[in-house]
Amino acid sequence: MIQFHNVSKTYPNGSIGLRHINLTIEEGELVVIVGSSGAGKSTLLRSINRLHDITEGDIQVGGKSITHAKDKELRRIRRDIGMIFQSFNLIKRATVLNNVLSGRVAYHSTFRTMLGMFPREDIELSLHALERVNIREKAYIRADQLSGGQQQRVSIARALAQEAKIILADEPVASLDPLTTRQVMDDLKRINQEMRITTIINLHFIDLAREYATRIIGLRAGEIVFDGSPEQATDEAFADIYGRSIRHDEMLGGEV
């Protein structure tokens, strides 16, 4: 469970990222956050694992405050939160398996991880995670040899190997083509349903949001202006979130 209590974020240059956010996300939900660029989607997502610090309020993850967590505690909470990025953020020269294994570092002592000696179980876990996203056979290939969609699946596998209870995905499909977009979204949905991992995704495609989400949250200028089921998120509701009518490029298109 993730709880936002009156969370605000003001950047050092004075611009406002988030404004009095109160939000509770239950276990197993697949929440899609929508909003025009600059609305604070990324800030909201990154405040959950404190990649961005908030300036006011409190965020609790699984009942523990991440806002007030000290170093070690913070890393302990982050360990349970997997993150998927728009640009994949893989180590391009390392093998796929090593990229997935890097999700395990927080489980082991610094000394052990410095030597790069992961236990057998971790390797099995990572290989099974790769199996789940159907790229087990790529385990020993360098990450930069994979296509964009495959790279994104590696980063999903990294989150799985991490045994994350929550997955945060920041525009996971923004640099993918329509076909691989669907494959990646299908993977995320399947993992969410089969393993009951709470999943929060930033998206800018409206039709994808409607198709995959169990709950849609609309942000505008750092404030929540919509919070409801996909059925409630009509075109009019989206127009309200964006403050204008929907444009063609905000639809992925294809069969829905």
Partner: peptide
């Protein structure tokens, strides 16, 4: 409990 089903199996 292993988050990935089947990960306990030794290959």
């Amino acid at each position: 409990k292993p988050a990935v089903p089947g990960s306990g199996r030794k290959s």
